[in-house]
């Protein structure tokens, strides 16, 4: 079995490099500056994982793949950041629902041992059924998101924002579209990419932000509910 990580980052490799170097992974570590993985696998929030078998068929679609913050017992240092917005974000994040401590890792181990006989391998019909809804609006949102990234990488931020806004409007449940866009305009400093919202004294280019949205929808549905 092989683990492959893919960093979804419009801005390129430098933003994620520190994390990769700190982890010193032995598995392939890939970069996806165009978010191809989003559309190809139905990834709508990160981190997510997909299982692909020896025959190059998907046997589990995109789903969260780590324990819930509460399950680990670890306290986020962001709760003590001293910044009100970051503390509020961290407080919401601790309420996010995912697996218990070893639940997902044990499922991966079971697949590694038993292959197609693993009880965690899904049928083709179940994989497609669990892969998430997509209608023409969802397709249009992906197209707008691709255009937004194209313009952002080319330095045309205004046109990028117009397309990011359309993507958010057409696919309001897609957190990846929002988190990527909102991460591009944070204040300088250690929380730049995680600020995800307006700053005092500055116009905000979007209709919503991370805190507003998660306080509206609730952290329990931050990741699409699923089961092993």
């Amino acid at each position: 079995m092989e683990i492959v990580t893919v960093c979804l980052e419009t801005l390129g490799s430098e933003e994620g490099r520190a994390f990769v170097e700190a982890a010193q992974p032995e598995h392939p570590t890939l970069l996806d500056v165009a978010h191809q993985v989003d559309a190809a696998f139905g990834v709508v929030n990160i981190p997510n994982a997909v299982w692909i078998d020896e025959h190059f068929n998907i046997v589990r679609p995109a789903e969260p793949a780590w324990p819930a913050p509460r399950a680990t017992g670890a306290r986020s240092p962001l709760l003590d950041s001293g910044d009100a917005r970051i503390t509020a974000i961290a407080t919401q994040a601790t309420q996010i629902v995912s697996w218990t401590a070893d639940e997902y890792a044990n499922a991966v181990r079971d697949w590694a041992r038993n292959g197609a006989r693993s009880r965690f391998v899904l049928s083709a019909d179940e994989v497609m059924a669990r892969s998430g809804d997509r209608d023409v609006d969802g397709s249009a949102a992906a197209a707008h998101f691709e255009l937004a990234q194209h313009f952002e990488r080319g330095g045309d931020h205004d046109r990028a924002v117009a397309h990011f806004r359309s993507a958010h409007h057409l696919a309001p449940d897609n957190w990846t579209y929002k988190r990527q866009a909102w991460s591009l305009t944070g204040p300088e400093g250690p929380f730049r990419r995680f600020w995800q919202g307006p700053q005092d004294g500055q116009d905000w280019e979007y209709d919503s932000d991370w805190l507003v949205d998660i306080e509206s929808s609730g952290p329990r549905t931050y990741y699409r509910p699923t089961e092993l």
Partner: peptide, 14 residues
């Protein structure tokens, strides 16, 4: 990686 089981993990630094 065809021929190998693969867990593809999507993440981001934001």
């Amino acid at each position: 990686l065809r021929g190998t089981r693969m867990v593809l993990v999507a993440w981001a630094p934001y």
